[in-house]
Design a protein around this nucleic acid. Sequence first.
DNA 1: TTGTAAGCGTTATCAT
DNA 2: ATGATAACGCTTACAA
Lengths: 338, 338
Amino acid sequence: MSKVTIIDIAEALGITPSTVSRALGGNPYVKESTRKAVQDKAKELGYERNIIASNLRSGKTSTVGIVIPRIHRNFFSIIISAAESVLYDAGYSVVICQSHEKEEDEIRALKTLTGSRVGGILISHSLSTKSGKGIMESVGRDVKLVQFDRVFHDIPGSTITNDDSNGAYNATMHLIKNGYTRIGAFSGYQGTDIYIERYDGYKRALEHAGIPLDESIVFPGFIDREAGYASAAKALERGCDALYCTGDYSALGAMDYLREKGISIPKEFGLVGTANEDFTSLISPSLTSTEQNPREIGEKAALAIIRLMRGETSGEDIVVKTKLIPRESSDRKGSLHK
Amino acid sequence: MSKVTIIDIAEALGITPSTVSRALGGNPYVKESTRKAVQDKAKELGYERNIIASNLRSGKTSTVGIVIPRIHRNFFSIIISAAESVLYDAGYSVVICQSHEKEEDEIRALKTLTGSRVGGILISHSLSTKSGKGIMESVGRDVKLVQFDRVFHDIPGSTITNDDSNGAYNATMHLIKNGYTRIGAFSGYQGTDIYIERYDGYKRALEHAGIPLDESIVFPGFIDREAGYASAAKALERGCDALYCTGDYSALGAMDYLREKGISIPKEFGLVGTANEDFTSLISPSLTSTEQNPREIGEKAALAIIRLMRGETSGEDIVVKTKLIPRESSDRKGSLHK
DNA sequence: TTGTAAGCGTTATCAT
DNA sequence: ATGATAACGCTTACAA
């Protein structure tokens, strides 16, 4: 086990711990020969810096916290995976907490993180978090914050978001181009930025195509499979021939209902989801969706928090492009060649 | 921000830091009234223990590392999620690393973790890790280890595994009971315990049913979607009417092939997967699979590492039961009522 | 039951 | 360019 300290190295070399520390820490005021000797000896003895002691003394912390609603949601787990690997390579540790979509848990997680002295936090808010108020109270001034996906713009720090409005615009346009004329929407909870943005994109597309907005075929609120099933019934009743869904699971629910009613997709009804979950390409018909590039979001978020902690910036807003992935569920024109 | 230390509390109360430390640390040799006073004052001043200093001094660490092949695989992300929440409640932090299925990355992760002085590690080995040798060399004697899912039994510490052999036995038996008679197997890489176990369960079921083992319809090695597709072709050629697959993705690949050939599932061909991935219930026909209870594995692994770090045990082997989830892909008898 | 005092291993701040 | 020394905030023998 590595019980080797800088003192051992210093003694072996007949110099002092301070010099060893400097040599290892990249301090410019060290003779190259000394640095070389120290590094060699360190390797020889199997030295590993005691991060705990280092953090204590320097007051800095090399730990970054991540708070997300649920770790086992594909979108988030890919983000974590990407962020974790960037942070790790940059010498940071990562601590992960879940909010389980509850503001209460989110605040508890934040308190625990600041308690364990993280230097920065990556967060995507729970759906039940209604404002940045409680967040700001639980996070100290010297902890840096990067929000991603679900963000509040009145919180200091950086944000990483998708161009959600454009994503929704493109998805809706895609339906229009495929000849659907009465396009409803599962618009999601309209108290959260991303859903507001997406609804906006949907409306812009309709407007662009000269289709009047009909709020009776817009279904806000829950977007899980069950809600999708229930709302699809109403949408059909009200004459829809397509649905733009701000979530893949709600689209799946709609698919359940349509299949039950013997309505053919995409012939009689068009469907697009959002998030490009794994299953979208596995089901039949496969589901057209919008790729949000979670890997890119994770990497950018990690780089953003590093810059923030290093004081290289005091905040930036980064937008990651989405991409429509056309599949069978909206392919009325048969433009897909398998 | 919390700059309050035990010294502040001590001064405010006219006692010494040691007593404050003891009161807060649950030391039994403290007068109840003192403890009460300390706790009240701590709350009043907004004190938060500096975990870094605490760890440095005590030599202990309240961080647990988790090493898994890939974080964004459903099975693993649920395990992490469960383990993380148990560990967090018990006052531990969690650091997560990925091995990307490469032994090299696994060892690198292990070294980084021991470098940041974790007290314990939860690990499921990469497929390319062939033995416990390299693992043992990179982990010091005083770091505790809990292996889960993919384990080596020559490594000290605890293990959490599924009753894989029984799971495979039940899955194969289920096919037999549904009237399939020539049942092949995607048996997985036969250098890893879980796959050996499962192959054993498959063989036991055949034996039990009096069906002779035919190795020409057993396909070891890769079990991804592509491999499933390729092996399904051979299985069909060799007269199989069903396949037991040690993975859902390989079963999905087989399904791809069978669908292409116009072979009806489950009428003409039966299919069971393993792992009960989310998509198994979303595709059509839905895929019979074996639930491995990752949540339970994660919780048990967390509790096991805690016991190990506390010195309450020096190692235990825990087996988590699997459960067959019958779905359409093997339902030749129509015993499923939807 | 509480106080005293000595560090844990590193880094910052003086000197030299 | 390097050395000496103190300190980061906490825990823990040992004493009282």
